[in-house]
Design a protein around this nucleic acid. Structure first.
Lengths: 256, 256
DNA sequence: ACAGGCGCAATAGTATGACAATAACACCAA
DNA sequence: TTGGTGTTATTGTCATACTATTGCGCCTGT
């Protein structure tokens, strides 16, 4: 029961540090991440039965309390379902809550492939285009000014991390300006996508790419300020697909 | 400690029954729903500290295990965060996972107002429009045929519940045909919206409204079959906003 | 009077072992 | 074959004790 060793922080910390969130590091969270990763990675496939309580207890060397709380957390995210006499079953993927920050993080731990990033970009396009259009119709002058402010800070960012942070704040502000609480709820998703883009290739290092990225974001902010939903939609679509293209291009280049 | 009385099933069962899901009814789930509702309804507002473990224990008359598992579940959905010496704090709304089936259900328990339904319709438009467009570009003949099949079944539905069920299956099939796992993940959200629409006013009772609803769904299916993303987008937007308009109109009429 | 460290105490986290409820499966009887 | 019935493995619940964390106040030293 060596509990002192092997407590290395999981590599999702890069993501956590970007968002400023510091997830409490306790036993429960260790077990949660290990099981969550195992499920998402397919070690236990959909419909399969997890090892029973007693077996997992032995494997992790924790108390039943800790194990069960970890399992409850996984159940809350839609990954598993426990039934008496049957065991704990891994639910089909379409029941998983992919908009959950942890679940997304586990996907990223496996090394996000291009198709996953594409899916991410597609949902973002769907939601954020609509958010931008709504913001253009509804938001006030002060919110519009805030948007411009974040774009300015993006332009002046000196490190890739700063750039990503301001980029994220911009998208969060757009979601908030839309006045729709659901839009704000996907910030975890945006965060992942931006973290991936920032990890793979940040435009900060390339002045030309930086100008393009800042430019398209400025288009969004100005369209919203001017109350032009159609232009806001177009610009937002460009911003997201451009970011995806850069990351995807870089990934494929690396593979060859 | 009267645990035998008052175990009436929560009214979210209507929703559960539509989806065929039968949530395990246990103590943990009772506590979860009561606390979840209290938080969503604002009994405990954002940033507030929940009563301490011992106080809640007394209130619910359950064991610490049950209470803590319920709290862990709420934490997993982003509603609360526990910190030693501080207590358990209700997180700000933008940290809540609004795409979670339970959280949505709690919102509905409070009697969904028009603005909530509007927000729901807006996200649906964002995501499902994109899903329809992707389906038009990617899906095969057999999937297209399945879509048509669901439309046919909608047209022949005899009860409002059947109609809603087939409607839901149609939207699920579109999401699946998009090939994007995130699209399928919002079925809980679609389910809520359709349940609301079906509860408030089903087109089944009105032959003319039925024809319109079926017609617009057929437009979606055919556009996807014909590989026409632009038309699929338009039709999907019509379908969702039309459903919202009918429900909203009915609600306002009832209020007067 | 003020700054800084240091310990108290309140709260959540963890451990353990026992018992209750559930339900798939095998068995038995009609 | 069928239908009910008991067995048993698995999760669900309980009670209690102990540990770890950390905000807050005290207390000391300057």
């Amino acid at each position: 029961m060596d509990r002192s060793g092997g407590r290395a922080r999981h590599s999702g910390d890069l993501i956590a540090s970007l968002s400023g969130r510091s997830p409490a590091r306790n036993l429960h969270s260790d077990v949660l991440w290990e099981l969550g990763l195992a499920i998402v990675s397919g070690t236990y496939e959909q419909g399969a039965i997890l090892p029973s309580d007693s077996e997992l207890l032995e494997r992790f060397g924790v108390s039943r309390t800790v194990l069960r709380e970890a399992l409850k957390t996984l159940a809350a995210k839609g990954l598993i379902e426990a039934r008496a006499r049957i065991g704990t079953r891994v639910l089909p993927r379409n029941r998983w809550n992919l908009f959950d920050a942890d679940v997304l993080a586990w996907f990223f731990e496996l090394g996000p492939d291009v198709s996953f990033l594409r899916s991410l970009a597609e949902v973002r396009i769907g939601i954020e285009i609509e958010a931008a259009a709504l913001a253009a119709e509804r938001c006030g002058a002060e919110q519009a000014a805030e948007l411009i402010g974040w774009v300015d800070r993006m332009a002046e960012a000196e490190t890739p991390a700063d750039f990503a942070r301001h980029d994220l704040e911009f998208h969060r502000a757009v979601a908030e300006a839309s006045g729709n609480p659901f839009m704000a709820s996907i910030s975890a998703l945006v965060e992942m996508a931006l973290t991936a883009a920032f990890t793979i290739s940040s435009p900060v290092s390339d002045p030309e790419a930086l100008a393009v990225t800042v430019g398209v974001h400025r288009r969004i902010a100005e369209a919203i300020r001017d109350g032009d939903p159609a232009e806001a939609r177009l610009a937002m679509r460009d911003a997201i697909s451009q970011g995806f293209d850069r990351a995807a291009g870089r990934m494929e280049a690396k593979d060859l």
